[in-house]
């Protein structure tokens, strides 16, 4: 079966069957926001949500991840952490799935990262399609991530009283196998689905003032743009934009030794280009001083460098950086600012 249908009233029992395969993590309400967390029952989740504070990246590349444990007295060769848990991510937005696809590119690059890849192998993704904007910060249409393009095992589309179930992998197939309440997509529902998608496509419009090739071009020419000076003046350096980005993957490696001075653990921890000492080296030299150049670097990592290196935009349009910025630095305004500047010149 490629496309199935499940009634909303059957979601509880399907969810319970998923739990038997492993833990399920999904979007849950936290005060005025949402976070991915452990879910015990289907009703605990909020499937209509604005992107969570941290993206599901935290399950692929945890903020602090143990790499190996070591012993000094008596010396014992370190053994890498190899045991990873099997679990399901439920209700992942298409933008966040696009983010995970970006991470896949990075961590598959030679030398491939065994921790990331082992984790990934154990994770099953059940996505949920967005039929409308979550809020005005999202720029998913500009990069096309409002439409799913693989990277998941199952995708759910809300059809009112039921969900369309798109099965995209063998893992996904296993999750619906033998479930009599999930039936094959019929012609009538297919028409209904087409109509819903037609309505959806009317709602999403490119949020930038130009198409991506032109955006990429203004980045090529806009390295010295006054836009960066303005952004740098407003930036308070809190690092939130990089913390919440689904495609930021920089990390630092640290050793912790316990008080017995023998048992230790090496971990990798998130590190951000917006940190003051990120580009500072042993002599004290700082290769990227100032908040303007740092912000510029962040944008270039999304719209230029990754395009040159991987032929891929590393912005997923999730809107998190804009949503979280207390200085109200907006990705949409920054990119449109660069476009305006170029057009003004032309």
């Amino acid at each position: 079966m490629k496309h199935g249908i499940i009634l909303k009233s059957d979601m509880d029992q399907w969810f319970d069957s998923l739990k038997k395969r492993g833990k399920v993590y999904g979007p849950k309400k936290k005060e005025s926001a949402f976070v991915f967390g452990l879910v015990h029952a289907f009703k605990e989740m909020s499937l209509s949500y604005i992107p969570t504070i941290l993206p599901p990246k935290k399950y692929y590349l945890p903020p602090k991840e143990s790499l190996f444990k070591f012993k000094i007295k008596p010396y014992e060769a370190a053994k890498a952490t190899t045991a990873f848990e099997e679990f399901i991510l439920f209700g992942v937005h298409t933008c966040d799935i696009a983010g995970i696809q970006c991470m896949d590119v990075i961590f598959n690059e030679n030398p491939a990262d065994p921790n990331y890849l082992s984790r990934k192998e154990k994770i099953t993704i059940i996505g949920i399609e967005c039929l409308d904007y979550c809020d005005s910060y999202a720029t998913c249409a500009s990069v096309g991530t409002h439409i799913h393009k693989g990277g998941y095992d199952i995708m759910l589309t809300d059809l009112g009283t039921a969900y369309l179930v798109h099965i995209n992998s063998e893992k996904g197939e296993h999750l619906i196998k033998g479930k009599k309440y999930i039936r094959e997509l019929d012609l009538e529902t297919r028409k209904k689905w087409d109509k819903i998608i037609e309505e959806k496509n009317k709602k999403f419009k490119n949020e930038f003032k130009a198409e991506l090739p032109e955006v990429s071009k203004v980045f090529e020419e806009g390295f010295f743009s006054p836009v960066w000076e303005d952004v740098g003046k407003r930036c308070v350096g809190c690092t939130n934009c990089t913390a919440v980005c689904p495609t930021c993957y920089c990390f630092d490696v640290i050793d912790d030794v316990s008080l017995n001075l023998s048992d230790g653990e090496r971990s990798r921890v998130w590190s951000y280009c917006q940190m003051d000492d990120f580009a500072r080296v042993a002599t004290g030299e700082d290769f990227r001083p100032g908040r303007g150049p740092r912000q510029r670097h962040r944008y270039f990592r999304k719209f230029k460098y990754s395009v040159l290196k991987y032929n891929k935009y590393f912005c997923t349009g999730c809107g998190r950086c804009t949503r979280t910025c207390m200085a109200k630095i907006s990705l949409k305004e920054t990119v449109n600012g660069l476009l305006d500047e170029k057009r003004g010149k032309g």
């Binding site: 005025s32 926001a33 504070i53 350096g237 809190c238 003051d276 979280t324």
Partner: peptide, 28 residues
């Protein structure tokens, strides 16, 4: 640490207190 409290706060997935209309010195 030479980075601000926001780094830890965000990793703890706290709701930013600025969103609640409070003034916080975390960013500096």
């Amino acid at each position: 640490p030479q980075y601000p409290v926001c780094v830890e706060c965000k990793q703890n997935e706290n709701i930013c207190v600025y969103e609640k209309g409070l003034f916080c010195l975390g960013p500096v």
